[in-house]
Design a protein around this nucleic acid. Structure first.
Length: 112
DNA sequence: GTCTTGACTAAGC
DNA sequence: GGCTTAGCCAAGA
């Protein structure tokens, strides 16, 4: 495992604000990892328990979660998101409303 | 060295 | 809206 890449993934995920979400591909690109979306999934899967990385804010490009619906992990992730005010439309998060846009975020917060 | 497996994605039907 | 297919790329076996 490339420790440096793993750390970059953590950094990016930690930068996702409460109540917002990003796709695996988004995190990969933002971390400078190109198209390695699946690698992001691997990193999150290996995350130690009790980590401060908000892994639940990372989901698939279509807004569905990375787990089979109804599984324990799926329920846990959904509960965490709902607790943050993230709205669901069936089995998917409303990406249009909650998708994290790092560049926009920088524009809105950076120059204030 | 190859083959399989993923918390993936975009495109096509 | 859904399902399938083909591409993707790092890890492990």
């Amino acid at each position: 495992v490339k420790q440096a890449d793993e750390a970059r993934v953590w950094r990016v995920v930690q930068a996702i604000p409460r109540g917002r979400v990003a796709s695996y591909g988004d995190v990969a690109r933002e971390a400078g990892l190109g198209r390695r979306a699946r690698f992001v999934g691997q990193v999150l899967a290996r995350l130690p328990p009790g980590s401060d990385v908000p892994w639940h804010r990372v989901l698939r490009a279509d807004g569905s979660l990375g787990f089979p619906p109804g599984s324990a992990s799926w329920e846990r992730q959904r509960a965490l998101l709902v607790a943050e005010g993230v709205a669901f439309r069936g089995l998917r998060v409303e990406l249009a409303r909650h998708r994290w846009r790092p560049s926009l975020d920088a524009l809105l917060w950076g120059h204030c």
